[in-house]
Write a protein that binds this DNA or RNA. Structure first.
Length: 137
DNA sequence: GCCAACGTTGGC
DNA sequence: GCCAACGTTGGC
């Protein structure tokens, strides 16, 4: 089962809203690499939910409950969405600053490609971050 | 097909 | 508010 990280600016769509809504369509991705990552997501895959700009930290975990379908917010049919369900908050959010200081995360896409909004996370990185966040899986 | 100009993202 | 990174657009 693959793991991912998705970014959202909390001013636009926050973790609190994700939790309140339960299941939420992940729309608005307009970058081809990010789109390819969305298309590679499978039912049951989990993703870290990251707050960009405000907070700059991983705050929770979501799960893919519907695989890629045409993004309803896209004018052309070229983009895709998936549906995400809130699974739970990290007991202790893991900040970008923290990840940057730890050499084990040097290869993490969040650090290497700061502008990518949907990215894969290796199993090792997933476990390390979940542990840092106090996640009991 | 190259590349300069420009727009956007996102960290600081 | 600034700027680096980087994707996109458009002239040639």
């Amino acid at each position: 089962m693959a793991h991912w990280l998705v970014k959202s600016e909390p001013d636009a769509f926050s973790w609190a809203q994700q939790v309140a809504n339960g299941v939420e369509p992940w729309t608005g991705v307009r970058n081809h690499m990010a789109k390819n990552n969305l298309k590679a997501m499978r039912l049951g895959d989990r993703a870290f939910f990251y707050h960009s700009n405000v907070g700059k930290e991983i705050v929770g975990i979501v799960e893919v409950v519907r695989e890629a379908y045409p993004d309803p917010t896209a004018e052309s049919g070229d983009w895709v969405s998936v549906d995400m369900k809130a699974i739970g908050p990290l007991p202790r959010p893991v900040t970008l600053a923290e990840l940057k200081t730890d050499p084990r995360f040097a290869e993490l896409a969040l650090i290497r490609q700061s502008r990518l909004s949907v990215m894969p996370v290796s199993d090792l990185h997933w476990q390390l971050i979940a542990r840092l966040g106090g996640w009991k899986a």
